[in-house]
Nucleic acid binder design. Sequence first.
DNA 1: GGCCAGGACACCA
DNA 2: TGGTGTCATGGC
Length: 212
Amino acid sequence: MSQPTLLKIYQSLLSAFGPQHWWPANTAEEVIFGAILAQNTTWENAKRAIAALKNTENLSFKKIPTINLEELADLIKSARFLNQKAKALKAVADYLGNTYNFDIEKMKKKPLGKLREELLNLYRIGPETADSILLYALEKPIFVIDAYTKRMFSQHGFMKSDDSYEAYQKFFMDNLPHNVQVYNEFHALIVHTGYLYCKPKPLCEECPLSHF
DNA sequence: GGCCAGGACACCA
DNA sequence: TGGTGTCATGGC
């Protein structure tokens, strides 16, 4: 794999599908809510949970500590794994409050590596969620690997299906310019393409990646 | 009724 | 370290 090839895949998906305008949220804070609520569920179900928080004026990490756990879990139940995700939102709220006084702009001033370490120490923030927050909420140059990325790029022979998250991430970051906008758009395009051609039965031969 | 969705984690050997 | 089970909604 050469850098021009991966860049060509990106350009090809971009011209085929256009800009995806990710992350679908109004504020950085909403991106963080969404990154947790969308874990291993459909975006539609995550959106319902976000709407429920918004309708009750609880879509703010300042408000999360004031809601009891059961009530919070009930509000976000459409996003699946309600109890775990409710605890995760509580943990992030504590972290944001204690470390940054809920000021995302203050958070952005910290270096990428330090922020990633802090996020990974939080309950139910794994590599994909941490990187989604870093890229889409904090505008840090790190590539997000998700289930679609693994499926598509292993099915088309660029990687192995059992390669680690880190291996996939290195593959993308070694072969693309370190650019927030490119990482943002490429990951969004991969999810879009994966949704069209990779689930549940793969339509690999029709997938744009089959041309590379 | 069964399977799957934009993961993470506990537990066990 | 890796393999497997758990979490516990909603749509198709």
